[in-house]
Design a protein around this nucleic acid. Structure first.
Length: 261
DNA sequence: ATGGCCTGTTACACAGGA
């Protein structure tokens, strides 16, 4: 089974890239982030035309997540409130960042973790609070499904080797100590980085800033991840980053990451 | 140090991204 995570930075703008990539790289589930479209305008037909099912949870202009699958998914859940009571969730479902579905005996959770803007900002606090709720959410998901694949754009690089430079890492959004500690606490429920099962060295990235010719200079970050429960981690046979779509004309700033188990 | 660039909106600059 192959599952891919890809922040496409607008599914409508990137539609040809995504469908052409899928036809060249068939996968069981493609998890999209930053679809940036309300559900009634999601380009579902483009995916059904090439033999895929589409499940989406979007909003106007910002955020939005979707699952694209070869076979129908079961028990598709949208938002934290699918498994956590409304009072605990509060306003953390207002932004559409969580969708999940089941294929076989595997639950795939697709996440678009808040960016956080700047250390100490309101959005930064929101990111940390969102991650704290995510821990509760994933704890419940793991109890129900021992085979859990949690993937998406985490907007966090856990190690300095996941970033092109190790300078001033503790002062930067996506690599500050509080973000890293909070994500590590989420993972402590029993999730491991599939990419690091196969690759130890640094210099592998999934996102390059549009500015300053970052892709050409390879000044990137690895912030898109597949975290697997132990039952699935043991089964994993590969985890790879496909940098090819980042070189296309008008690309997303992220590139697909695929795990196979 | 700063801003670089890209997307969607009802825009004719802005917010948000990372």
């Amino acid at each position: 089974m192959k599952v891919t995570s890809w922040n496409v930075n607008s599914v409508r703008t990137r539609l040809e890239h995504v469908t052409q990539w899928l036809e060249a790289n068939p996968v069981d589930v493609l998890c999209l982030q930053e679809t940036k479209v309300v559900d009634k305008d999601f380009p579902e037909q483009a995916f059904t035309d090439i033999g895929y099912h589409a499940y989406f949870y979007g909003q106007k202009s910002y955020n939005g997540v979707a699952l694209i699958s070869k076979e129908p998914l079961s028990d598709v859940q949208k938002g934290f409130s699918a498994v956590i009571d409304e009072e605990t969730v509060g306003d953390l479902d207002a932004q559409k960042r969580v969708i999940s579905g089941v294929l076989g005996n595997v639950r795939v959770v697709n996440l678009y973790v808040p960016n956080g803007s700047a250390i100490g900002s309101e959005k930064y606090d929101y990111k940390l609070n969102w991650l704290a709720l995510l821990k509760q959410y994933l704890t419940l998901q793991l109890e129900a499904y021992p085979k859990l694949n949690v993937c998406g754009d985490f907007n966090i690089a856990l190690e300095n080797k996941d970033i092109y430079t190790d300078k001033r890492r503790d002062k930067h959004i996506m690599s500050s100590p509080a973000e890293r500690e909070t994500l590590r606490d989420v993972l402590s429920i029993g999730l491991s980085d599939a990419f690091r099962k196969f690759t130890d060295e640094g210099g592998h990235f999934s996102w390059w800033d549009y500015r300053s010719g970052s892709f050409a200079r390879n000044t990137g970050w690895r912030i898109d991840h597949h975290y697997l429960s132990s039952a699935l981690y043991e089964q994993a046979i590969s985890c790879t980053i496909d940098i090819e779509p980042r070189g296309l004309e008008r690309p997303s700033d992220h590139t697909p990451v695929t795990v196979e188990y």
